[in-house]
Design a protein around this nucleic acid. Structure first.
Length: 612
DNA sequence: TTAGGGTTAG
């Protein structure tokens, strides 16, 4: 094609832009200049859109000048395109200048401007413009609604919903998706599901958003139901669909097998290497107790971002692999990766779970001094945890007194728990009172305080705490443990006799108990809350839910197969001792996930180094 | 000419 006219050139540029071929479009545009082709309004509009896509601010400014210099009129396309580019590059002043000079501010530039404000965190201005356009009779369209609904900190989805229903825009996939997501962010999945069902033609974004909604509230079954439904409708999942369903498979209620199956499915769909999928896999495997698989996925990641690195560090931290978390951190440094506050929460937590007090403090210092990251409440919480677990309660209190925040309930809970372990009754009392005043309905505060009194043999004070609990009608969460055998989950309460194999389970416990004593085990009855005699205390200990789950696991699986137990509360000190011994006498690796971390029991010792 | 979904901590 020799004599190319401007229309041909323009359609080339526009075509490439529409197909996301940014570099090709730039090349063509460059050729146009060399060829001396006439640049029209639509050429400029295309190339400005290109700048918005690629955030080429400098180039956009040049184009802006050329348009002014060559006397090309600012039509809607050029103006809106420039606004978009400036918005994306955090130059809101320039964007609003162009907007204010536009004569006919119809719905499109208004919407683009609202989007710009929201991208730059200017919530108030976005909402003001939305209100103003309504007042001036400019009717919002589906784009406007889908954008304004993302301003969930200011705009109530309930209010906008009413307005949207009148216009029927809720049947549009884009609007319905934004609306359902706004409900999810309020924690209202039921409302989100209602919105989802009303969407006429659900596209993959809508399906993925609904799936993410169930994942968000930890409803694994809901997420799997959506996944099956979309598959049955012949919809092809994309990387976001997989990352959400894998994330839902990381919930504690999900079976270990479930995550593996979605992993396999993502491989079949050739989406397992997408960054968001592989990072979700790292987290899922780590949370489900399989730190080796988490690391396998991590090692194979072709590209990594901050989230990938953070996921691996946090995974190691939860499993008490302090050294490995440290190694990943070093590797991050060698790769000149940028780090954020979450990276440091990961490494400090790893130090906490390994008892590396000095190192934990050093990470905190490096974070502030070298990385200029402002410590948040969470970082101070980590430090307090670091010192408390090591028994350095004075140091922990120093931090509470010097930090620029008021101490949170979480912090007092940490102090209180440490006071129980390290027998510091005075401070424990103080922390317990603070905690109860901050969260009068939280059973943990009362339970910890009464545990502490029980451990110190102060039965009178313990009774008072219990009385207060009754008066305020605060219920203690029941402790239970569960184990998966052949894809079925079996859960046990303490002293539970509801399982069909109950008789065999209890006789297995008896058998273990004899062999434990032969191995030199002495029950530590400090972990029993009830005010009863020692013999009775031992009986209570021996029926803790984790032991029932382990006894069942030993009966229900062949010799040598590792067991994995989950518990909704922290493992008690006596059970911890017992499980270490069981791992030797039964020659089994046992992994226990409690609310805090993973314990890997092997040949008589635990990965936490008796420190948790 | 304007748009909606995901992954990391505690």
């Amino acid at each position: 094609m020799e004599d190319r006219d401007s229309v041909t050139w323009n359609s080339m540029v526009a075509g490439y832009v529409a197909n996301g071929l940014d570099m090709e479009s730039f090349k063509v545009f460059h050729h146009m200049g060399l060829d001396g082709a006439k640049l029209t309004q639509s050429t400029y509009a295309s190339v400005i859109k290109l700048c918005a896509n690629t955030k080429e601010l400098g180039f956009a400014k040049q184009i802006h000048c050329q348009v002014l210099k060559n006397g090309i009129g600012f039509d809607h396309n050029i103006s809106t395109g420039l606004m978009g580019t400036y918005s994306k590059c955090n130059e809101m002043d320039n964007a609003s200048k162009i907007f204010s000079m536009m004569h006919d501010k119809n719905v499109v530039p208004c919407t683009a401007m609202i989007a710009g404000y929201l991208q730059n965190g200017k919530m108030d201005q976005a909402v003001n413009l939305f209100t103003q356009m309504n007042k001036e009779g400019v009717r919002p369209n589906n784009f406007t609604y889908s954008i304004i609904l993302t301003a969930n900190s200011i705009v109530s989805p309930f209010q906008v919903h009413a307005q949207i229903i009148k216009t029927n825009y809720d049947r549009y996939s884009s609007v319905g998706t934004a609306l359902l997501d706004a409900f999810v962010k309020l924690g209202n999945v039921n409302e989100a599901a209602k919105v989802f069902e009303l969407i006429d033609e659900k596209d993959i974004v809508a399906w993925s958003a609904m799936l993410a909604g169930y994942a968000h509230v930890g409803d694994t079954e809901g997420a799997v139901r959506i996944f099956r439904w979309l598959a049955a409708e012949g919809v092809k999942p994309n990387e976001f669909t997989f990352s959400s369903v894998i994330n839902a498979s990381a919930a504690s209620a999900a079976a270990v097998e479930q995550g593996k199956q979605f992993h396999a499915f993502s491989i079949k769909s050739r989406l397992n290497n997408a960054l968001c999928v592989s990072s979700a896999l790292v987290t899922m495997y780590a949370r489900k107790g399989n730190i080796e698989s988490a690391n396998e996925v991590f090692k194979r990641q072709g590209e990594r971002d901050l989230v990938s690195w953070n996921s691996m560090i946090s995974g190691y931290a939860q499993h008490g692999h302090g050294k490995k978390a440290h190694e990943v951190f070093r590797e991050m440094q060698r790769n000149n990766m940028e780090m954020d506050g979450i990276t440091f929460i990961g490494v400090i937590t790893a130090c906490t779970h390994t008892g590396l007090v000095d190192e934990g403090q050093q990470y905190f210092d490096i974070m502030v001094k070298d990385h200029h990251i402002n410590p948040t409440m969470e970082h101070y919480s980590c430090l307090i945890d670091l010192y408390s677990r090591a028994g350095m309660l004075e140091k922990a209190m120093d931090i509470i007194n010097m930090m620029p925040f008021a101490a949170s309930a979480t912090m007092w809970r940490t102090i209180l728990a440490a006071c129980r372990v390290h027998r510091n009754l005075d401070l424990g009392k103080q922390a317990g009172e603070k905690l109860i005043s901050l969260q009068p309905q939280d059973s943990a505060a009362y339970v910890l305080l009464s545990n502490m009194y029980a451990a110190a043999g102060h039965w009178q004070e313990r009774a008072e705490v219990r009385k207060l609990m009754d008066e305020r009608n605060v219920k203690k969460e029941a402790g239970y443990s569960w184990i998966e055998v052949k894809n079925k989950t079996y859960s046990f309460l303490a002293g539970d006799r509801s399982h069909p194999l109950s008789v065999r389970i209890y006789s297995k416990l008896e058998d273990l108990s004899t062999r434990l004593r032969d191995a030199g085990y002495q029950p530590d009855t400090n972990h029993v809350l009830q005010d009863v005699d020692d013999e009775h205390k031992e009986a209570i200990l021996s029926q803790h839910s984790e032991r029932l789950a382990i006894a069942f696991g030993l009966l229900a699986t062949p010799a040598g197969v590792p067991l994995q137990i989950f518990k909704n509360l922290r493992v008690c000190g006596d059970c911890h001792t017992v499980i270490k011994l069981i791992s030797t006498i039964e020659k089994r690796d046992i992994v226990v996930r409690d609310t805090n971390r993973f314990h890997h029991f092997k040949e008589g010792s635990c990965s936490c180094g008796d420190y948790w």
